Simulated assay, not measured.
Amino acid sequence: MEEVNDDDIDKIFLQMRKELQKIKPETGAQDYGPKERSGFHALGFGINIPDGFEKAGREKTAAIFFSKNRPDIVLLNPAEHAGITFQAAKSGNFSLDLEAERKQIRRILSQADAKNVFYDQGNISGDIPVVWFDYKSFAVDERVYNMMFLFPAGGKLMIGTFYCIFKDYDRWRPKILNMLRTIRTEEAVHERI
C-alpha cells in the first residue's frame, strides 16, 4: 500500500471508497436510532452515535487511512457505506475560537483540492459549543459527502468528520446534526451529578 501525504486528499478518499466497496450490504430493516457510546471517555467526551456504526480495528483503519496521521477513533457503518471519525488536535495547537478554527480548516481543505464544493455551516448550542460545515469532495468516479465538526473537550480541540457516498447525504445529514446535539464533555456530565 502506498503511503499518503497530508495533502493527498483524493488518495485518501479513493482508498476509503475502495475499502467501503468491499463490504456487502446487509439485508433486512435496521434501526438507526441513537446509541450511547461510552468508549470516548479517554478523549473527554460522550456522544450518541446512530446505530450501525462500529469501531474499526487497527488493520481496517490503516486500510482506509494510509497517512500516519490517522484519526483516534474510526467508526464504520458497512451496510450504509458511511463513517465517522474523531481526532484530538495537538493540545495547545488551537485557539478556543471555534469560528477561527473552522475558517482555517476550510481554507486548508480548499487549498488541498480546489474541486471541493462547500455548502453550509452552522453552530450548535448545547452542553458545549459545536461548529460544523459540510462539503462535497470527489473520488475517481464517486462524489463524497463530508461533514466536519469541531468542539472543545478535555482541554483539546476535537475534530470530527462524517462521510458517505454523496447520493445518501440527504438521509444522513439530519441524523448527523442530531448526533452533534448530543455531544457532552466529561466535565459537563460531572457538573450535573
Results as ranks from 00 to 15, higher is better:
S110R: 12
S110Y: 08
Q111V: 15
Q111I: 15
A112K: 06
A112I: 14
A112D: 15
D113H: 07
D113Q: 13
D113S: 13
A114C: 09
V117W: 06
V117F: 08
V117E: 15
F118M: 03
Y119R: 12
Q121T: 09
G122I: 15
S125Y: 10
G126H: 11
G126Q: 11
G126A: 09
D127E: 12
D127S: 10
I128F: 04
I128G: 08
P129R: 12
V130R: 12
V131L: 13
W132H: 15
F133P: 10
Y135G: 01
F138Q: 08
V140F: 10
D141E: 13
D141W: 04
D141G: 06
R143K: 13
N146F: 03
M147Y: 02
M147F: 02
M148K: 07
F149S: 03
F149R: 02
F149H: 04
L150F: 05
L150H: 02
L150Q: 05
P152G: 05
P152W: 04
P152C: 06
A153R: 13
A153K: 11
G154D: 13
G154Y: 15
L157V: 05
L157M: 09
M158W: 05
G160V: 10
G160M: 14
G160D: 13
T161H: 11
T161I: 03
T161Q: 12
T161M: 10
T161S: 14
F162D: 00
Y163W: 07
Y163A: 06
C164Q: 04
C164A: 10
C164V: 09
F166E: 12
F166T: 02
D168E: 11
D168W: 07
Y169K: 11
D170R: 10
R171V: 06
R171E: 07
R171K: 14
R171W: 12
W172P: 00
R173H: 10
P174V: 01
K175T: 13
I176T: 00
I176G: 00
N178F: 00
N178L: 01
N178C: 00
R181G: 06
